[in-house]
């Protein structure tokens, strides 16, 4: 835990300190450059707000409605037969939609099964190997006014699905 944290913050800080330092060596007015770049940030945010509000509200509704639990109940018998633990189902369903919801489910799984359980490791691996695809697509494409996203959602969801199945299989193989 300690060393991972250390590496993680180390890399983070090397970005923050390293880039201005190198810029200084290259004789650039680093603060002027910084301010000029930072200005752009607000334009992007202004364009994202409508998409963010639309998506977050819809996903919040889905979360509050109990749909994930309902769907998980329906799918459980089918997926347990192919070796997917039923406890992971709410996580798998929530993950492409919402980072907050899937983090909450992960915490719940760890609490129910214990931090050293195989299921908890599967769930944690799953969080790391997947992404909130629908959110990413909505924000990234929304910001530049792309309405026809073509195969982006399909491919993102395929990558998520494979990441989930691979997480389960690899944890069983290496940690089980």
């Amino acid at each position: 835990m300690q060393w991972v944290n250390l590496i993680s913050s180390g890399m983070f800080l090397s970005f923050v300190a390293g880039i201005p330092l190198i810029g200084t060596f290259k004789k650039i007015k680093v603060f002027e450059s910084f301010v000029e770049g930072a200005k752009e940030g607000f334009n992007v945010i202004l364009r994202i707000i409508p998409f963010l509000v639309g998506m977050v509200v819809a996903i919040g509704m889905l979360r509050a409605s109990g749909a994930f639990e309902l769907l998980a109940q329906g799918l459980a018998p089918l997926l347990t037969r192919v070796g997917v633990p039923a406890d992971l189902l709410p996580l798998m369903l929530a993950r492409p939609f919402s980072g907050a919801a899937s983090n909450a489910v992960l915490v719940d799984i760890i609490r129910a099964h214990g931090g050293d359980s195989l299921v908890a490791h599967m769930a944690a691996t799953m969080i790391g190997s997947t992404e909130t695809t629908l959110y990413v697509v909505a924000i990234y494409f929304g910001a530049i006014g792309i309405r026809k996203t073509r195969h982006a959602i399909t491919c993102g969801l395929i990558a998520d699905g494979i990441g989930m199945l691979a997480s389960i299989a690899i944890c069983r193989w290496l940690l089980g």
Binding site: P20, I22, V30, E36, G37, A38, G41
Partner: peptide, 9 residues
């Protein structure tokens, strides 16, 4: 984006 602009310059 500010940091990135420095890196770009």
């Amino acid at each position: 984006l500010g940091l990135m602009k420095i890196a770009e310059d």
